[in-house]
């Protein structure tokens, strides 16, 4: 699975401009699926199975988009000012590199500050793309870029940009590959614009009208020095979300997921995340309401260019999803 992960996390796909990732995923899934389509917001919707008696229509969602920046101004000397796409933290940017959709590269630096201890606000940062005037700057206002960074394989742990949420994209692709038969009509949705407010999942869920929704995304951990207080840690299995900052999982779905994991002897953790949310939030409020849950891949340093996951959690997530989808479902 690691070569697939590497391909996915090194692809360029800021929110709203997920085309390159979509093409990659399409190549992987076309032979495995019964139907593949792209909707008005660019969601890739991949169907496997046909609903049989007792089966459900299930939507799984992993978002293809990643956080990034967008150029707002090019000054006389060719320096690029920018604003953010999605939740970017200033402290993770300085000295980093960006790659624009048009192929241009640049480095992020900032105006000189009075105190060396201060973190630059975005307004005081700029991107140097190697130009010396507005005229020869390869970037225009409105051009998007992502934080360029190759993946590193630390053995059991993997580090890359956009583990959030390409690791889940990889999990869905692998689950589709492993899923031999299902009584359900399963829609694997590779969604768009999650980082700017779960917009793609909103419209995908409306179009699919599922009976059950599961988002697959990353979640934070509490296992770093003097870090956040949180019960989730790397390597202890994928996390079944109970709640996050924007959603309460359906308790019946939480029970079904955790009971299934226990029966199949797949390690798992229970997750409460006090900020942030996922595509599940959007799915839950669709039409007359949808029971939802979320399977999370524990991840350190989320929304930095070096997000870290444990490979065993990824493998276990695939196993759990495969078991969950292979059997009839009785929510109670």
């Amino acid at each position: 699975m690691k070569p697939l992960i590497k391909k996915l996390v090194e692809a360029v796909g800021p929110s709203g401009y997920e085309g390159a990732v979509r093409e990659l995923v399409k190549k992987e899934v076309t032979k495995l699926a019964d139907d593949v389509r792209v909707d008005a917001l660019g969601n890739l919707i991949v169907r496997k199975g046909k609903q049989r008696p007792g089966g459900l229509r299930i939507m799984l969602s992993a978002h293809m988009d990643e956080i990034g920046i967008i150029a707002t101004h090019i000054d006389e000397n060719g320096f690029v000012r920018f604003t953010t796409i999605g939740g970017v933290y200033p402290r993770t940017l300085f000295g980093g590199r960006v790659q624009f959709l048009n192929g241009a590269f640049g480095v992020i630096s900032g105006e000189r500050l009075e105190s060396a201890d201060r973190v630059h606000s975005f307004e005081k940062m700029y991107i140097d793309v190697g130009a010396d005037s507005k005229a020869n700057c390869p970037v225009k206002i409105g051009d998007l870029a992502i934080f360029e960074r190759p993946m590193i394989d630390l053995g059991s742990r993997l580090v890359a940009k956009s583990m959030d949420d390409r690791i889940a994209v990889a999990v869905l692709i692998e689950t589709l590959r492993k899923l031999e038969s299902t009584p359900h009509e399963v829609y694997f949705v590779f969604s768009t614009q999650e980082e700017v407010g779960t917009r793609g999942a909103t419209t995908a869920a409306y179009g699919i009208d599922p009976d059950l929704g599961i988002a697959v995304d990353v979640t934070g951990t509490g296992d770093t020095p003097k870090g956040m207080r949180m019960a989730v840690k790397l390597g202890a299995g994928p996390a079944v979300k109970v709640r996050d900052g924007g959603m309460l999982s359906d308790p019946r779905v939480v029970r079904w997921m955790s009971d299934t994991a226990e029966a199949a002897k797949i390690p798992y953790q229970l997750e409460i995340l006090e900020a942030g949310s996922t595509d599940a939030r959007a799915i839950q409020l669709t039409r007359a309401g949808v029971p939802v849950g979320c399977l999370s891949i524990p991840c350190r340093y989320i929304h930095s260019p070096s997000e870290m996951v444990d490979y065993s959690d990824v493998v276990n997530a695939v196993s759990l999803l495969t078991v969950l989808l292979s059997n009839p479902i009785q929510l109670k």
Binding site: D39, A40, L41, N43, I70, A71, T72, H73, T83, K140, I141, G142, R199, G200, T202, T203, A204, Y206, G207
Partner: peptide, 23 residues
Amino acid sequence: QIRQPGGGGTDAGAIHKQRAGIP
């Protein structure tokens, strides 16, 4: 002109999320 990307918004923010999505 291209409006500088950033805050603010218009009715488009609600419209594009209706039904199965609207460009």
